[in-house]
Design a protein around this nucleic acid. Structure first.
Length: 272
DNA sequence: CCAGTATCCTGCAGGC
DNA sequence: TGCCTGCAGGATACTG
């Protein structure tokens, strides 16, 4: 499940491949992703444009063009962006959009569950999806900025962390890990946690994301980096996916609870 | 305004 | 062995 570190990994790989490359054609059939995509229509918008340096905002990949305009891509649950040496390489199932580049290579968007999107943003235009995004957890002033925001919320801290309009980029995996590292129970009301503990949580968010980026992104079954390598990097996950197993710190059996229809695993001893 | 829930979609694991 | 059920979950529209 791509969260911020996985998207950042995709961005950094694309940064080695696409800047300076011009799109010469777009292939694919119309498909209903999170938003409908029509490759023929997309062709009219991006053919002839040249990729500039790829960017990332939270979990959104932004691919600007030197001529103006940009592509906004979200990987959803199962989305992948891959670079292929030639357009005739075998197509993976659920490949929805293919961009032919002027050096003969092909950029592909694949997404089995179709929770992702590929959206054209015309020059000067933005999109509500990225406009609504909250704080950047990797920013230098993140800790100072986020504590008062969290303090004003009455929802369980886990739900607040998942809210992209508060902090952009965290998902179910890294939320669980950050809460464990900060020793905070997922269902504790955000506003009732002391400022000191919230600061610790903010730093834990930064640490866990930075470690994951350094490791190349946690690869579970749905993620591969854009070169198509199976980048099975391992990040040291303490709680995610470890329900019923002993806590690495105290040995207590880890517990799973469902919040907002999402499973959260935590240590009932270490997290209060 | 804020919080909580249903919905989209497919692959796969687990149970019988 | 094979089928069936349920779960995985990011964003968003909708309800309370």
């Amino acid at each position: 499940m791509p969260e911020l570190p996985e998207v950042e990994s995709v961005r950094s790989v694309l940064a080695r491949h696409i800047p300076g490359r011009r799109i010469v054609a777009v292939q694919g059939e119309p498909v209903k992703l999170r938003r409908g995509v029509d490759p023929a229509e997309l062709a009219g918008q991006v053919v002839g444009r040249t990729f500039a340096e790829p960017e990332r905002q939270a979990k959104f990949l932004l691919l600007p063009f030197t001529e103006g305009g940009r592509l906004m891509i979200h990987l959803g649950m199962t989305g992948r962006v891959t670079v292929h040496a030639a357009p005739d390489e075998p197509l993976a199932p659920h490949t929805h959009v293919r961009f032919d580049l002027d050096d003969g290579r092909q950029l592909r968007f694949t997404d089995a569950r179709r929770f992702g999107c590929v959206v054209w943003l015309p020059p000067g235009e933005s999109d509500p999806s990225i406009d609504k995004l909250g704080l950047d957890p990797l920013a230098d002033d993140f800790v100072d900025q986020v504590v008062p925001l969290w303090k004003s919320r009455q929802s369980p801290i886990k739900n607040v962390l998942m809210d992209q309009s508060v902090v952009g980029g965290l998902g179910n995996i890294y939320v669980a890990e950050a809460l464990f590292r900060a020793g905070i129970h997922p269902s504790r009301r955000a506003g009732r946690i002391s400022a000191g503990r919230l600061e610790k949580l903010a730093r834990a968010c930064q640490t866990v994301l930075r470690e994951a980026i350094a490791a190349g992104g946690t690869t579970l079954r749905d993620y591969a980096n854009p070169e198509g390598r199976e980048g099975w990097f391992e990040v040291d996950l303490q709680v995610y996916g470890r329900e019923g197993q002993p806590c690495h710190v105290c040995g207590t059996e880890l517990v799973a609870m469902v919040m907002q229809a999402r499973t959260t695993v935590y240590c009932p001893t270490c997290q209060r």
